[in-house]
């Protein structure tokens, strides 16, 4: 495997459309729940340990070769917000287009055939990591990092937060990210033998409610 492939996949400039999504930060800023670096950090920490943990485990399981159709169903059940399911599939479709060019592989082609409207993004991310020769923990890291880097980048634009402060938030979360990636890979390994029900299902009620509200806004900076 090439370790550098992980840098390519995790790069914010990887053309997969992630920059258009705030990970719920836009709704939280509007509601006055994110007002600066400290509340951004709390937000990212909560997201990391809920939906971030779930996404990382789904990605890790896909990287291990667990059936993407079963994983996509597990992602649906763990994403009760219809707005978030739609966003996850849009992101999955965009990621798949880029990944098929970057790391051509029959598994990616099969995923595109199975899900013409897009599979859940973490599932695509895991299969892409696999095609790039990366492992379960790599996929988990990539997904968990996206769970916090998306909101941090978005809040720089939404609140004109100092980019140094936003980056410092990410740096402070790094040790917790290690833990989440490790646990995600561990539950993914269990899912290989025991099925997708053993994957974590941690939820964040305010992210779900906020996403439904945000989807109805007439004017917004981010797609989700």
């Amino acid at each position: 495997m090439s370790r550098a492939a992980l840098l390519v996949l995790a790069d914010g400039r990887f053309p997969a459309g992630g920059h258009a999504h705030s990970g719920g930060a836009e709704a939280a800023v509007k509601a006055g729940r994110i007002t600066g670096a400290a509340s951004l950090e709390d937000f990212c920490r909560g997201r990391l340990h809920t939906t971030g943990t779930v996404s990382a485990a789904l990605a890790a399981a896909a990287a291990l070769g667990v059936d993407p159709v079963a994983l996509d169903g597990a992602a649906d059940a763990r994403t009760p917000s219809a707005a978030l399911r739609a966003a996850a599939r849009r992101l999955g479709r965009q990621l798949l287009r880029a990944a098929r060019v970057a790391w051509p592989a029959p598994e990616l082609d099969a995923l595109a055939r199975e899900f013409p409207k897009g599979a859940h993004q973490p599932v695509v991310l895991g299969v892409a990591a696999r095609a790039a020769g990366l492992g379960a923990e790599d996929a988990a890291y990539c997904s968990a990092y996206e769970a916090v880097s998306g909101p941090a980048t978005a809040v720089v634009r939404l609140l004109s937060l100092d980019p140094f402060d936003a980056t410092a938030v990410l740096a402070r979360l790094a040790p917790e990210l290690d833990g989440v990636a490790r646990d995600a890979a561990e539950s993914a390994r269990r899912a290989v033998g025991e099925g997708v029900d053993v994957l974590p299902a941690a939820s964040a009620p305010l992210l779900e409610v906020g996403a439904e509200g945000h989807a109805g806004w007439a004017v917004r900076l981010f797609a989700s």
């Binding site: 719920g24 939280a28 729940r33 994110i34 509340s39 709390d42 937000f43 990212c44 920490r45 909560g46 997201r47 990391l48 340990h49 809920t50 943990t53 169903g73 597990a74 649906d76 059940a77 763990r78 009760p80 917790e176 029900d197 974590p200 299902a201 941690a202 939820s203 964040a204 009620p205 305010l206 992210l207």
Partner: peptide, 23 residues
Amino acid sequence: TILDQELSCGPGAPAGWDGPAVL
């Protein structure tokens, strides 16, 4: 499975449970 959801809250729950993303 059409819904699978966990919620952990209170002292000892994963960090961020009472923060702006969760409660």
